[in-house]
Simulated scan of single mutants.
Amino acid sequence: MTAGMALAGRRRGLKCLAGVALAAALPGAVRAQAKGRRLVSLSGALTEVVYLLQAQDQLVGTDTTSLYPEAVRRTAKVGYVRQLSAEGLLSLRPDTVIGTSEAGPPVVLEQIRQAGVRVALVPSRHNWAEVQEKVAVVGRETGRAQQATALMAQLDAQWAGVQAQVAQATRKPRVLFILAHSGSPMVAGRGTAAQALMAYAGAANVIDQFEGYRPLTAEALASAAPEVIISTTQGIEALGGETAFWQRPELALTPAYAKKALVALEASHLLGFGPRLPGAVQALHLRTLQWVA
Rank of each mutant, 00 (worst) to 15 (best):
Y200R: 13
E227M: 01
P185Y: 10
S223Q: 14
G189L: 06
T233A: 00
K172V: 09
A193I: 04
N205D: 12
G241W: 14
V166R: 03
T149A: 15
V187E: 00
L221H: 04
G202F: 04
L151C: 02
G212Y: 08
A157D: 12
L155N: 06
A222V: 09
A204D: 13
I236F: 03
A153L: 13
A222R: 13
V162D: 02
P173G: 10
M152W: 13
L221R: 02
A238L: 02
A199W: 09
G161F: 10
I230D: 03
M198H: 04
T232R: 01
L155Y: 08
I178Q: 06
Y200L: 15
D208H: 11
A201W: 11
A199F: 06
L221Y: 03
A238H: 13
L176D: 05
V228F: 09
Q147R: 15
A167T: 06
P215N: 08
A194W: 03
Q165H: 14
V166I: 07
T149L: 14
R171T: 14
T192A: 06
S223G: 11
A160M: 12
D208G: 14
S182L: 07
A145W: 11
G235H: 00
T192K: 02
P226Q: 03
V175A: 15
G161H: 13
T233Q: 07
M198K: 04
V187K: 00
Y200T: 05
S182N: 08
R171F: 09
P173I: 12
R174C: 05
H181N: 12
V175H: 01
F177G: 01
M198D: 04
L155K: 13
Q195P: 01
Q147G: 12
E242W: 02
L197N: 00
T232S: 15
D156Y: 01
Q165T: 12
L176G: 05
E237Y: 09
T232M: 01
L239T: 10
A244T: 10
G212V: 10
T233Y: 00
A196D: 07
E227G: 08
R174Q: 12
G161W: 12
E237F: 08
A164F: 01
A222Y: 13
M198T: 11
A224C: 13
P215K: 08
A169Y: 03
V166L: 07
V175C: 12
A244S: 15
T233P: 01
E237C: 06
A203N: 11
A194I: 07
L151I: 02
V206S: 01
V162W: 02
L239E: 10
A222Q: 14
H181T: 12
V187S: 00
I178C: 05
G202E: 04
R174E: 06
A169C: 11
V187D: 00
A204K: 10
T232P: 04
T217H: 11
V166P: 03
A188K: 01
L176C: 09
Q147S: 14
A225M: 11
Q168W: 07
A225L: 10
L176R: 05
G235D: 01
A188N: 02
Q147T: 09
Q163R: 15
G241T: 11
Y213Q: 06
T170P: 02
F177L: 04
T243C: 01
M186R: 15
I236C: 05
L155D: 05
A157G: 12
W159V: 07
A203Q: 09
E242T: 14
G183L: 07
P185V: 11
T192P: 05
E227L: 02
G202T: 08
I236L: 13
